[in-house]
Structures are given as structure tokens and as C-alpha cells.
Design a protein around this nucleic acid. Structure first.
Lengths: 210, 210
DNA sequence: CTGGACCGGAATGCTTCGTTCCGTTAGTCT
DNA sequence: AGACTAACGGAACGAAGCATTCCGGTCCAG
């Protein structure tokens, strides 16, 4: 009943999930890990991987799309709250908790983008933008910040990384809390220098490097 | 008069500087760049490099020591100011402006450490600690922060990185300003979660990986 | 004029992958 | 029961990237 499929076929179906999970684990830790590392983490041979994905790019693109869906899902969950400030808080924490950034931006540029990824990316951006704007309109975010700054906040917190994943999560929570405090208008002592990142600057990361 | 040494020897002496400068530029942008990239940036052949350094490790260690000295120098300059709060501000901005973090932590672990590096590192840590403590004692820094948090702030701001170096500097200034605002006691809405990083956690990055 | 310090850059040998190949196993079907 | 074959594990292969070495040239110094 847990597995409607029997024997061999069930094993294969289970492997689908195990492999995807292993890939997420491995590439989150090391974006340029070899395929063999994923196989080892999953406890399978490399051929089990190539049976499911045409190549490394294919796997990476799948993971990236998955990451964008998690990003959108984090927006969904956050928007269930009433207060715009609470929404932004929940959204940002959700994105960081799932380490979505490692799954998207850090993987982007290692494969040629598909149309689907473009659409997902556009939706993700729009959703984050909406949440941010509402919080800002509600006076919960200092006026000299823009939506694109959010991407950089993700980038910065994601840079906190130790060998131990659990410890990393705790530390990220620490600095995320610090940064969320910083976003409030009350924290401002002056005006932030420089223009915020442009969409083009952020989008540049999606084009394959070299 | 610009070159007391003549002809061939002068060229060589000039190359010393050009090569080190090129190495700094290249490895700051790409910590795992090939030697050939440094040679190209310097406009020389690879043999000019190997004439001066025993190998890549040697060059990297030199660069790393140089970075630590810049770190200490940033502390020197900051301490010329009177106000402890201003000292901390100047120190942090100085470290980021020179991208010292890319020159030290990001390079560490790619070579076997020398005793000299250990000493430099210890001094650098102590100097940063002193500046931080004074600022905190003066009430300019929230009480739930520790010196080791400073390292993580550097780590995070350094993660802001675009293709254009000039633009990167501007953006880092933007987020550094945001973070410096966040360090003040007035910005706190609660207590930061999780313990700050330990010295051991930060030191782990200096041991060669794998 | 000439020896040799300095160089530029090709050649070398090694390591690290992505991908393919082949023999094996264990459900499945008659 | 006895093939048949989907699904594997993992070694083998070939391509790339790179640190380091080597082999002529070049151009002062003496």
C-alpha cells in the first residue's frame, strides 16, 4: 500500500526520489560537484542517474526549476499571513531555510536556460516583488531599499556556510535576524549609498559563463 | 631617474611588482584561477612567474600574507581616529574596500599554512578584536554581538559580487552601510538567535581541504 | 663580441570528470 | 521452471584543464 508498484519497479520509483534528494543535498553543498558524488550520496551507481537524466545539465536544470518552485511556494505560504511585515519576514526566512538561493542562482550559468526556467524565474521575481512592495508601503521597510536588494540579502546570508549544515542553519538565522532588523526604517541613520542592483545586473547571472 | 636600474634589470624589477599586482587582481576575482591567467593579466609569460615563485602555493601564500598585512594596516589606520565607534566603522570599511577577505579566507585552505601566516593571522584577529571590544564597551554595538560576528559580516558583504569591479564596490558599500546600521544597539528589536561563531569554527577554514 | 640572465610560450604528464559500455541481478511472463 | 529484460553497479574511455618544465630567442653587461 505504501508502494502500489511491486518489486523491481517499486525500487526504481523509489530511486527517482532518492536520486533527486541526493542531488539536492550534494549540489547545495558543492555547486560544482561531480556526478559520481551524487551517485554515491544516493547509494546507487552512475548508470542509475543516466537512465533518468540525459546528462548533468539536465539534472541541474531540473534542480534549478525545483528551487524556483520552492521559492514561489515560500511566497504562497508567507502570503497566508495578514500583516505585510510578517509576510516579508516569513517569506525571507522561508527562502533562506530551504537554501533556495544555492539551488537557483548558484546553479544558473552552468547550463543553457530553458523557456520553462525563464517563466518560473519571472514569476518568482514578481512574487517576491509583490511581498516586498506591500511591506514597504505599510512602512515596515526603509524607503531607500528596493526589491532587487532582497536578492542581494539572500546572496549575503547564503554566503554564511560552515562544514556542519545544522550549525550553518543556526548561524544564517542569526544574521538573517540581524539583517531583518536592518531593513526597518527605524534602523536607518542615513540614506544608503549607490543605486540598488538593476534587473539586468541580477539577470546576468542566468547566462552561461564563458 | 625613475629607474635607477638600467635596461634588463630594471625590466625585471618592474615585473616583480606587475606580477604581484596581476596575481592580486586575478585571484581576488577568481580564487581558483590558473597560473596562466595571472601571466596573461601581467602581460608576461609563465616562466617569468616561475622564476620568482617556487610554485602556485608559494604565490598564493605570499598573497595571503599580503592580505593579512593589509588587514592589520586597516586596523592601524582606524585606530588613528578618536571615537571608538568611528574606529570600528573605518576599520570595517577599510577591510571591505581592499577586499581583504578574498585575499585571506578565500585563499586559505588552498595551500599548507606557514608559521608566519599563523602569526599574522593571530595578530590580525587580535587587532580586530580590540577595535570591536572598544566600540562595544562604548555602547556603539549591540550587546548580543561578538567579535567573531565581524568575520561573518566580512564574509557576507564579500559575497556581493558582480562582473564589474567598480559596480561591485558601490554595491558592497550599500550593504555595508546597511549592516553597520544593524550593528547599533538602537536597531535591535530582540536578541539574536544562536551562539556566535567560535574561534575553532572560523579557524577551520585555514586547514587544507581534502 | 659574447656569456648568461630573463623571457615567451609550446610541450609534457597528470588529474579530474562526463559519459559510455558491459557483465550481473532479480522481477516478470509464459 | 526457464528464458527475457528493465534496471543496475562500476570499470573503462576520452576530453579538458592545468601546474610545471623545457627549449630556443633577446638583449644588456663587461
Amino acid at each position: 500500500m505504501t508502494t502500489p508498484l511491486s518489486g523491481r519497479r517499486a525500487q526504481a520509483a523509489r530511486n527517482d526520489e532518492v536520486i533527486l534528494e541526493a542531488a539536492r543535498t550534494v549540489f547545495m553543498r558543492t555547486p560544482d560537484a561531480p556526478i559520481a558524488a551524487v551517485a554515491q550520496e544516493a547509494g546507487v551507481g552512475v548508470s542509475a542517474l543516466y537512465r533518468r537524466y540525459a546528462g548533468k545539465e539536465d539534472l541541474l536544470a531540473t534542480l534549478c526549476a525545483d528551487g524556483l518552485r520552492r521559492f514561489i511556494q515560500a511566497a504562497d505560504e508567507a502570503e497566508r499571513l495578514d500583516d505585510p511585515a510578517a509576510q516579508l519576514d516569513a517569506f525571507v526566512r522561508g527562502v533562506i531555510a530551504q537554501d533556495v538561493h544555492s539551488l537557483t542562482v548558484h546553479l544558473a550559468g552552468t547550463f543553457t536556460p530553458t523557456p520553462e526556467l525563464g517563466e518560473l524565474s519571472a514569476e518568482a521575481t514578481a512574487r517576491g516583488d509583490a511581498i516586498f512592495r506591500r511591506a514597504q508601503d505599510a512602512g515596515a521597510v526603509r524607503a531607500d531599499l528596493e526589491t532587487t536588494d532582497l536578492a542581494m540579502v539572500f546572496e549575503q546570508v547564503t554566503a554564511v556556510r560552515l562544514d556542519d549544515p545544522a550549525r550553518t542553519a543556526v548561524l544564517r538565522d542569526r544574521y538573517l535576524t540581524l539583517l531583518l532588523d536592518a531593513l526597518r526604517p527605524q534602523a536607518a541613520t542615513g540614506t544608503l549609498p549607490g543605486p540598488a542592483p538593476t534587473g539586468a545586473e541580477l539577470g546576468a547571472r542566468w547566462v552561461p559563463r564563458r
